[in-house]
Design a protein around this nucleic acid. Structure first.
Length: 360
DNA sequence: GACGTAACGGTTGAA
DNA sequence: TATTCAACCGTTACG
């Protein structure tokens, strides 16, 4: 099938404008970096622009996640239904309360923390728009609560929005129930809690954590990630967005599938291939019953370990790209940060070589 | 040549 | 139901 969709970049790589690269490729980028391969070579090899490689690696170093950020939607609302409810109560109990007092109380009562407490102006707006004279729960709210709220949750979508909730485990939980949460193995196990990541000090989205990645199905914790959706029809069914989601997948599938093979072996390494596979091949139909993989047997991957030859890398990258380092003269790879060093160990050995050798 | 980054054209999805 | 619009995307080009 002809991949109707993607575009081809200057390096000959396929990409879909506006959409994230497949996780398998993202992962691969990180792995290669951990193996000491320079970004420029990763770029050439995987045919992903160096700007993108740079961005993905930078993010990984910072957050520990290979996942793309949450696309679309609105900012995580700080004025969650629960917050509004509390504000309403405060106001009811003390009609003369000031917005700043409400703010303080939200913090004091633990309804919010400093990261998600609404601004005074937001509170004022809430009082004005949603609470008004205090009578009813703007039907809006209540209505919504039932549906939307139930299944999805902000956390899920914006893993980073709620610092506290996160935690390696927590995060993951964003995922729909039923997900096979298996093992988290995943090669990328980096020394996880990297200081800032976890703490999210930066307030950045530190949350997509690797655990997520490890998640069974493919690190795709984020909704945004079409990948997942495929996997959890249920989930989106909730908000009824399926359609687009699925379509998207299909599209993607078209694009990537061909190369998925690629990812198959490319990534082949250590982690369960299953993941990767799941990722893309997501059934165009989407149907993937949540629990299974129908995704194939990615044997190639397995074969890998030993020989390293399974890489018919041909398609993926032009062999030549690698020339230099393949040849041994590779200089000590430019230093990746220290944290990486360990990671290095994690992954190393395993496959690593296959790629290199194969290309040589 | 390697690489960080801004501009750009694009998609997404909560509100 | 349709529209808005801010979030993110990867590529490109520049420095």
């Amino acid at each position: 099938a002809e991949q109707t969709y993607g575009e081809v970049n200057q390096l000959g790589g396929v990409f879909v404008n506006g959409r994230p690269l497949p996780n398998a490729i993202r992962l691969r980028i990180v792995e290669l970096a951990q193996l000491g391969i320079r970004p420029c070579d990763i770029s050439r090899q995987l045919r992903v622009s160096h700007g993108c490689v740079s961005k993905i690696l930078a993010r990984y170093n910072e957050t520990g996640s290979i996942l793309p950020g949450a696309i679309g939607g609105s900012k995580p609302r700080v004025t969650t239904p629960n917050v509004v409810k509390n504000i309403r109560e405060y106001k009811q109990n003390d009609p003369g309360i000031f917005a700043w007092e409400i703010r303080d109380r939200l913090l004091a009562d633990g309804v919010c923390d400093k990261y998600n407490v609404p601004s005074v102006s937001s509170i004022s707006r809430i009082l004005r728009n949603k609470i008004g004279n205090l009578s009813q729960p703007s039907q809006y709210e209540s209505a919504k609560q039932g549906s939307t709220q139930a299944g999805l949750s902000y956390n899920h979508i914006y893993p980073y929005s709620y610092p506290n909730t996160m935690s390696p485990t927590g995060t993951k939980m964003g995922s729909p129930p039923g997900v096979p949460v298996t093992a988290g193995h995943m090669s990328l196990s980096r020394p996880w809690p990297s200081a800032h990541t976890v703490s999210n000090i930066l307030g950045i989205r530190a949350f997509m954590d690797p655990t997520a990645i490890a998640g069974a199905d493919g690190y795709a914790t984020k909704m945004e990630d079409w990948t997942n959706r495929a996997a959890f029809p249920a989930a989106h069914a909730v908000n009824g967005i399926d359609k687009s989601a699925i379509e998207a997948e299909i599209k993607y599938a078209q694009v990537w599938q061909p190369s998925s093979t690629l990812s198959g072996y490319v990534s082949a390494c250590a982690y369960s291939p299953s993941n990767q596979y799941g990722v893309y091949s997501g059934p165009p139909g989407g149907y993937v019953a949540p629990g299974h993989h129908h995704w194939q047997p990615q044997s190639p991957a397995l074969s890998h370990p030993g020989g390293g030859m399974s890489m018919h890398a041909g398609e993926i990258h032009s062999p030549m790209t690698f020339k230099h380092q393949a040849r041994g003269d590779r200089k000590p790879p430019s230093p990746l940060s220290k944290q990486q060093q360990h990671q290095h160990e994690d992954l190393s050995g395993v496959h690593a070589t296959s790629l290199l050798t194969s290309s040589s």
